[in-house]
Design a protein around this nucleic acid. Sequence first.
DNA 1: CGCTGTCAACGGGTTTTCCCGTAGATCGTC
DNA 2: GACGATCTACGGGAAAACCCGTTGACAGCG
Lengths: 124, 124
Amino acid sequence: MSDIHFPPRELAVMGILWRHGSATVAEVRDGLEEALAYTSVLSALQTLEEKGYVRHEAEGRAYRYFPTIAAERAGQSALARIRDAIFAGSAEQLFAQLVADRNVSRAELERMRALLAERLGEAT
Amino acid sequence: MSDIHFPPRELAVMGILWRHGSATVAEVRDGLEEALAYTSVLSALQTLEEKGYVRHEAEGRAYRYFPTIAAERAGQSALARIRDAIFAGSAEQLFAQLVADRNVSRAELERMRALLAERLGEAT
DNA sequence: CGCTGTCAACGGGTTTTCCCGTAGATCGTC
DNA sequence: GACGATCTACGGGAAAACCCGTTGACAGCG
């Protein structure tokens, strides 16, 4: 039910916070692919805070921003949306597309297999 | 590089086109969860057409709309984006989140396993 | 022919997203 | 204390997304 949706720029910012755990405005700015003005990054953070996806603490003279939503939860929501809209509700089709990517390493595929075996081994 | 991104409403519309292969305005409207005015749906289709994600053919007095982009391609792009932003670039983590969903059936999991075995069996 | 229903085009209003300049506060330094 | 660097708050402009009313076209029907 949680209808979480991040527009492109805000998602990019959240991505950096998830990777780092937390970050200052300057750190987010450095992490961003596109070179934005300092105030632009700050604005993004502020709107995210307004939406409740982020909070901040004072750190010295600056603010340190923390995600208030776990990456897993955002991921769950995003995957469900993609599954339903793009893959006609089929997790299997989604998976097929995922592993069709030539860039996924053999090691990764093997760990997926292990994960799958574990999941399949569970009691019904 | 293909930076495909569909805002929520447009994604919902595309989803219906992908499911049906094609659809008239009325059909899209019926398929949508939210009850929108006819003209609102038409507008969405027209902006999608403007962006080149959709085209139309005359069908009787009405138009029939077709997606011009394959669901697989949109899916590839969407998955890459959430993998990078939410799962720190790890397809494995994304996969873990996918199968963590209690709603994926055992049958689906088994087909994933088969798919994975096939993919792993390929020559390096 | 006139009425009714369906359709696409158009335009406009509102909200959201995006980007940044300016202003004001604060800290360290000379 | 003046200066420069760094930071947040604020506001505003531009574009995108969203939602729909109105209009005019056209087809079927009595």
